[in-house]
Nucleic acid binder design. Structure first.
Lengths: 205, 205
DNA sequence: TAGATTGTTAATCGATTAACAATC
DNA sequence: TAGATTGTTAATCGATTAACAATC
């Protein structure tokens, strides 16, 4: 599956998919050229063609890429039609917001349940998703067959949670805690530190 | 100020700062070596030394870098002591969560106020911050002297909001809407698409 | 001194861009 | 056909790593 594509190309795949899906469906964009995509996204057009080549969808000289087919190819590439379950640990403000966010379904991902260690939250439902005790993390992940997890706990709890998620069979973690977590080589991690990103922007000015 | 540092080195600066601040303050880490930092963060040690060189803080052969001094140098580099105001547009779940999040202060950033176009929200306070009408965006940004903004509105509203922020004098935007926004060259943008990041993780498996 | 660690210069690696042939 | 666009190969660019001299 999805192999030996450069890291950075992979990261752009959802961007292409999003962009193509957002175009008006009135026939204007039956075909779209790499140049048009590049302009819409602020990328180089050769880069776009190279990236799209990884999807296996061939463009036609003179007209460009068949949009519907390209969308399907990107969806296939990103395995959007394989339903994947994710769990979220930490039901603070951010955890709550993500539970209510509808965007995951665009990639075939469903947030199946949440975990917290606040007795006042355990047993409740948020956006229709049950909040379970962190003590039941292993069992909860197993039951819904989750392979993805979002960590939205305070920094000091993140490392422990990451290890528990690993034990629970989670294969990839999106970490919002502002610490590097190291659950080991068998688990992929992407860190998103919102405050740090704002600080980076500030110091670029 | 902050000049000609490689993009990727800049992105790691907050990571170093975070890490150094998180170490126990019991004297164990009066000095810390690049090797130790590299290990703690999963980076190469030469890379760490190169990055830290941009802060101007010199390490001592045989002992490493003076931690307190290094923290100060990183803080200076990131202008943490220059107070910077930010605004947030869109008070949905994510906007709310970010308003309540205390992490920005670590980088000298304060979320001064929020904007929304829901009359039920306008005039209320969240985490002590006033929610204003998007119609007052220009005036609100001016009054608090904000140069940073967070966009947490639905995708279809993001481009318009970005342009309004530009008109209001905002210089950098952290965009959570899953669209590329293009307010023009005078405004820096970092995009964070949470669902896309989870999709990327999923397809790496 | 000997050893550990820094800081720098050169080499490597990967990603982007440029040039251009192929194609409809 | 002529022209626009794709797809590929070579060149460039930037970031990381390796090698090693300098230093305390």
């Amino acid at each position: 599956m999805t192999k030996d594509i450069p890291e950075f190309s992979l990261q752009r795949m959802p961007v292409y998919l999003n962009y193509l899906r957002s175009l008006p469906d009135d026939g204007t964009y039956g075909y779209i050229s790499s140049g048009a995509i590049a302009q819409g996204l602020g990328l180089g057009e050769v880069l776009v063609r190279k990236d799209l080549a990884y999807t296996g969808c061939a463009g036609k000289p003179k007209v460009g890429y068949p949009r519907a087919e390209l969308i399907r190819a990107l969806e296939k590439f990103l395995c959007v039609h394989d339903k994947k379950n994710a769990v979220i640990v930490g039901v603070g403000g951010l955890g709550r917001a993500l539970l209510s966010y509808g965007g995951f379904v665009n990639y075939g991902i469903e947030l199946a349940c949440a975990f917290d260690n606040d007795p006042a939250k355990i047993g409740t439902y948020i956006a229709g998703k049950p909040v379970l005790s962190v003590a039941d993390l292993r069992e909860g992940c197993r039951r819904c067959g989750a392979i993805l997890a979002i960590v939205a706990v305070p920094a000091q709890a993140a490392q422990t949670v990451a290890e528990q998620l690993k034990d629970a069979g989670i294969k990839a973690i999106l970490n919002f805690a502002p610490v590097q977590i190291a659950p080991g080589d068998s688990v992929r991690v992407i860190n998103i530190d919102v405050a740090a990103n704002l600080a980076i922007l500030a110091s670029m000015l």
